[in-house]
Nucleic acid binder design. Sequence first.
DNA 1: TATGAATGAGAGTTCATTCAT
DNA 2: AATGAATGAACTCTCATTCAT
Lengths: 171, 171, 171, 171
Amino acid sequence: MNSALELFSDYGYYGTSINMIAQKAGIAKGLVYSYFENKDDLLKELIYSGIREFENVFDADKDGFLTEDEFEFFIDESFKLLQENISFWRLYFLLVMKKEVIEIFGHKFIELTAPHINILTDYYKRKNHENPETEAVLFGAMIDGVAFNYVMNPEKFPLNEIKSVIIKRFK
Amino acid sequence: MNSALELFSDYGYYGTSINMIAQKAGIAKGLVYSYFENKDDLLKELIYSGIREFENVFDADKDGFLTEDEFEFFIDESFKLLQENISFWRLYFLLVMKKEVIEIFGHKFIELTAPHINILTDYYKRKNHENPETEAVLFGAMIDGVAFNYVMNPEKFPLNEIKSVIIKRFK
Amino acid sequence: MNSALELFSDYGYYGTSINMIAQKAGIAKGLVYSYFENKDDLLKELIYSGIREFENVFDADKDGFLTEDEFEFFIDESFKLLQENISFWRLYFLLVMKKEVIEIFGHKFIELTAPHINILTDYYKRKNHENPETEAVLFGAMIDGVAFNYVMNPEKFPLNEIKSVIIKRFK
Amino acid sequence: MNSALELFSDYGYYGTSINMIAQKAGIAKGLVYSYFENKDDLLKELIYSGIREFENVFDADKDGFLTEDEFEFFIDESFKLLQENISFWRLYFLLVMKKEVIEIFGHKFIELTAPHINILTDYYKRKNHENPETEAVLFGAMIDGVAFNYVMNPEKFPLNEIKSVIIKRFK
DNA sequence: TATGAATGAGAGTTCATTCAT
DNA sequence: AATGAATGAACTCTCATTCAT
């Protein structure tokens, strides 16, 4: 799965052959098929396991009420998760635009982000912002953009500085 | 090229066959090969032409000095460009993370955005922001994120509201 | 189709690869797939075309009433058909026992033979045989057996002598 | 071997995997290979054992002289053998036309039937039939056809009625 | 200039066979 | 004696590319 994740995230799903995966994993092609039904299934497992990891981390503050401290904690955790799963998030961005993927996982992805948008809307509402929902959506898009730029070039992207500015500007 | 762009942006590079492109364009498969050396070349031309369009639009204010009015104009133009070339930007996000693409176009993409980041850095420096460069980078990432979310779901994403909030918060 | 028919009838469906067929036909593997959707489809076409040929020949005496002269004519035609389509009948015997094939073609095969059995039953009834239906079924089985032995070894099997004996004994 | 015989006769040689056989037999895949050299060998053993069984039953009246009573006994025994080994005879019909099988077992199959044909020829000669040998060959083919139809559909085929008619007509 | 029949490399997948345990 | 993880050859099928027309 690690080999597959890395290759998928570098070359895309169709750009990665089972042969490449097996070779990278140091096993025979056929063995892949005793772990996964087929290539599609391997991808699914990869995504599910990524989603599960994400859900585990963000299950804590499910009371739906975000304090300023929790806001900072949320940013912290998000960025930590991002840094620890670069390949997964690369794959996420690679796939999330494909029609087939949206059909299968679209709802999963929405379930993942929608609650955060809601909590944020609430947060900005309490802070008397003018358009709390748009603000929340923009915040979400910005996080996407930051994640996107980071996974595209993890060495050069100044994630920590960015974090500070985000907190300063959006808390 | 229009057919190819649309198909690539919908089904991905590997998900689109030369046959599909020829059919959509109403020509024979073989004819594609008198316009383009091969499928790779067709993709390259597509990207180059997208980049050229982008460069043309943003050649105007090359004096490197951004006023507040120009800032708003810049946002306006960017979003217009985004809305008029949804397929291209979908394709951009679809490809930009692939290793092979980065090897070929990586520097092109950087050349495209770097000047804007510099101009923005300058802009924020003049406004006495604390970390003008980080601020500029975050702004760029945010625009990426907005674009990404918009092309993923153009009907639902509130582009105009977002624009207002961006101007209010980042001008 | 000729190459496929011959190979299928010699080595069976699974014992024949698309490569073998293409090689025998002197074309490239891929070309097979512009004539037929897939291997299954090729087999189906083969069977349908064989069935059609059979139906064409035996459409003449569809009045359902068999005279002694017509009986002889029927035998004649059957054996002629057998001799002209050895490969097809080999394939028929090879396939007709497979579950998958029966599911798809079972009714077709029954439609092919059932009318003849009925006509024969009628024929033997008129001749006051004791068990006309069993007699007809036995006759059908015998023709199967003769065909089976003939296609298994066309050079050695004495088809013409057999024909005479059949006519003498069963007319 | 029982598992293999049943599976081969239902799904064919290529349609049956070693896995299926092992599973049905309740043993591990690898263990099959300590009983048989390979899949081919397993098939061979299956056929040999079927042939041996056949030979055992028909070794009794090897004096080469067939009386009318023995004729009836012969039919009886044949049909009993058929009914008790449906799977084997299904497999026989499934395989007997394949080139590879003929190359290996062709002579065996001929050795099996030839003596009976001879004895029958003799039988019909004594009864002053016109073409005793052809008569015998036809009889053999008919038995094949009956067996074929029976194993194709054991529930529906009227084996006992057929037996009576055969005895009446061919004794 | 335009076609699409033809090619064959390479993809995903299966499965007979081996062998360390 | 028994297991099943592991292998890789061989299969079906796709599709970028070529080329005679």
